[in-house]
Design a protein around this nucleic acid. Sequence first.
DNA 1: ACAAAAGTGTTGAGAGTACACCCATGC
DNA 2: GCATGGGTGTACTCTCAACACTTTTGT
Lengths: 230, 230
Amino acid sequence: MTTSEKPATTGQPAQTDDLPRHVVSVDVVLLTLSERKLRVLLVKRRARPFEGMWSIPGGFVRVDEGLEEAARRMLAENADARNIYLEQLYTFGETQRDPRTRVITVVYYALVDQARIAVRTSADAEETRWFPLYDLPALAFDHATLLEYTLQRLRGKLEYTTIGFQLLPPAFTLGELQVVYEAILDRKLDKRNFRKKILSTDILEPTELTKMEGPHRPARLYRFHPGAAR
Amino acid sequence: MTTSEKPATTGQPAQTDDLPRHVVSVDVVLLTLSERKLRVLLVKRRARPFEGMWSIPGGFVRVDEGLEEAARRMLAENADARNIYLEQLYTFGETQRDPRTRVITVVYYALVDQARIAVRTSADAEETRWFPLYDLPALAFDHATLLEYTLQRLRGKLEYTTIGFQLLPPAFTLGELQVVYEAILDRKLDKRNFRKKILSTDILEPTELTKMEGPHRPARLYRFHPGAAR
DNA sequence: ACAAAAGTGTTGAGAGTACACCCATGC
DNA sequence: GCATGGGTGTACTCTCAACACTTTTGT
């Protein structure tokens, strides 16, 4: 349930132009995997507050724009890629978070195969770069907390969903999948146990292909099983 | 991380009065347990849209009010109770959800011991009542979906947190705790296995007291262990 | 005495963990 | 031929599920 239509509110009908109104922003934690490390996309702020500091990309939600739609716009402003996995994380709405004015921020996180994405530096950033998630610069606002929370969610979902696959291309080797799990959990896993567990779930099916790269035995490529629960 | 200060947004500084602004509401799913059943507090709408239908209590967030603060205000408007467990669930922000105007709704859920709460019918409700979660009337907006999602979250957290304790008084019997788990999971549990599992976690400590009610052996009262992880 | 919930152990199955060697390839 | 990741099985431990009878009380 990453997305939904849905409710609204009770309360007196009230003329809609009497209602209190808020500035709403969306931030997107974009994660990928390269060189065996989880990495997050950060932008160097050109504007105040926190000018010159690294932060998670985000922006204001437009009047006629859904939240997920806004999140995808943020993604598009900072990178080129289609059909990125995107999930809402949490909404921060304390009154004093932003020195300029009261802002409510809805945070999303996104996962993408590094081969499918090219970053771009948007107009309001001085620079845009991938940083290893376990080796970050100082971050604006409390974006560090936010990344911790993202990681927590990701680790939780890794166990009972197929979310980890979002960091890989459609066909991949079991070794590559293991690297994904190890990067997210930040610990080594036993190769035999990992394979046994993954294969026992029947969510993968072997292809006829193998991947040959480097001086070693070619690895079988697997793909996500077309009819898999979870 | 139910609460937090936190971030805001990137993007050009922009004059803050140029920024797009949104109506934001907060809905609160309030759950309790009585007569061995999970129950949710619903209000019969006096106003349009969905006039006369049952819905989850909610209201508009004020300009200088935090989101959790707003959620507690909604609680206070419909019931009397202090220190209720409250957690953010999800934010719905599609553009066409409310026929009146575009509304972004942040949904919270809350758990309370039935003995600690008295409901009240607020000014904009025709009636306010507890309904068994597994036996609901037709609901306004897509509040039915929302309750399903709440239940999903609750079931998930039940396994690895002590969230279930929020539905009980400070001291309770193992039988009462088992009723909580059975109500949330909607299935019978084995008494011996349940006790073994709960006691093996060391999150409970026995008190010197017992609870005597009804024609049967008195049950020992337990309380939440002062120094417990999770 | 009887009705009602409290309280208490053992067994079997399945899941998770630890652990070491041969295979196929590129250079 | 050697360096590199691919690929495979077994034994032990621990957790989870199934299952029935005695105890203490109120009426």
